[in-house]
Simulated assay, not measured.
Amino acid sequence: MTVLTVTVSPSLVAKPFHLAFTRPVVEIDGIETETAWGTTEFTLGSGQHEIAVAFRYRGTHKAKLARARHELAVADGTERVRLTARLGARNGSSFTITEE
């Protein structure tokens, strides 16, 4: 199994707002997990995976805003994969997901 580390961060300009009023959502192969801003670890098997990151306002359960997708190929024997998802500074910006 491979450990997937996902670090989700808002822009510095909007960070106080997002820490107070929003929660990030990480979706792996269609299964979503509401997380906290910062780093979260998941376990993946080898193969192709679709990773998506979005946020929603606290108290809401359906809307996913600023959603971005990333296709991830995990080879057999890979121990750890790190992704960083950063939210853009402008209102209406989406996340940018990069693989380290």
Rank of each mutant, 00 (worst) to 15 (best):
E41R: 10
I51V: 15
Y57C: 05
F21L: 14
P24K: 01
M1R: 12
R23D: 12
P16Q: 07
T43L: 12
T7Q: 04
V13N: 01
D76M: 10
E100P: 04
V8H: 01
R69H: 14
I97S: 02
A75F: 01
N91Y: 12
G47F: 05
T78I: 10
S46E: 15
K62C: 12
K15E: 09
V13F: 11
L44A: 11
T78F: 03
R56V: 04
T2D: 03
T60Q: 13
L44N: 09
S9W: 08
G38H: 05
P10R: 03
A14R: 01
E41W: 05
P16K: 12
F17Y: 14
G59L: 11
R69Q: 14
E99W: 00
L87H: 03
Q48E: 15
G92M: 06
F17V: 11
G45F: 07
R67V: 07
R90A: 14
D29I: 13
I51M: 09
R56H: 14
E50W: 09
T39F: 11
K64W: 03
R90H: 05
T78K: 13
R67S: 07
S94M: 05
A52E: 06
G59Y: 13
T39C: 06
E27S: 12
V8T: 09
T7K: 10
G59I: 14
D29G: 10
E79W: 01
E50M: 13
E34F: 01
P16N: 08
V13L: 13
A20V: 07
S46N: 11
H49A: 03
A14L: 13
S9K: 13
V53F: 00
T96A: 15
S46Q: 15
E41C: 05
E100I: 09
F95L: 07
Y57M: 15
H61P: 03
S94A: 15
R69C: 07
V25S: 02
T33A: 07
D29A: 07
R23E: 11
H61Q: 12
I97Q: 04
V13T: 10
V26R: 00
L19I: 01
M1D: 14
G92P: 09
L65V: 13
A89N: 02
G77Q: 06
H61L: 06
T39N: 04
A73C: 06
T35E: 02
E99D: 10
A20E: 04
T39I: 04
T33W: 01
L4A: 07
R86P: 00
R90V: 05
T60V: 11
E79K: 13
P10L: 02
T39W: 09
T22N: 04
P10I: 00
K15M: 10
A54C: 09
M1C: 12
R80L: 08
S94D: 14
Q48C: 11
S93P: 02
L12R: 06
T98L: 07
L44M: 15
H18F: 15
T96F: 03
E99G: 09
G92R: 04
A20K: 13
A75V: 01
F55T: 00
F55Q: 02
G77K: 08
F17I: 06
G30S: 06
E79P: 02
R23Q: 13
T84V: 05
A14F: 06
R56C: 10
V74K: 10
T22L: 06
G38F: 03
T33Q: 08
T98H: 08
I28A: 03
E34D: 02
K15R: 12
S93R: 01
E32W: 08
M1W: 10
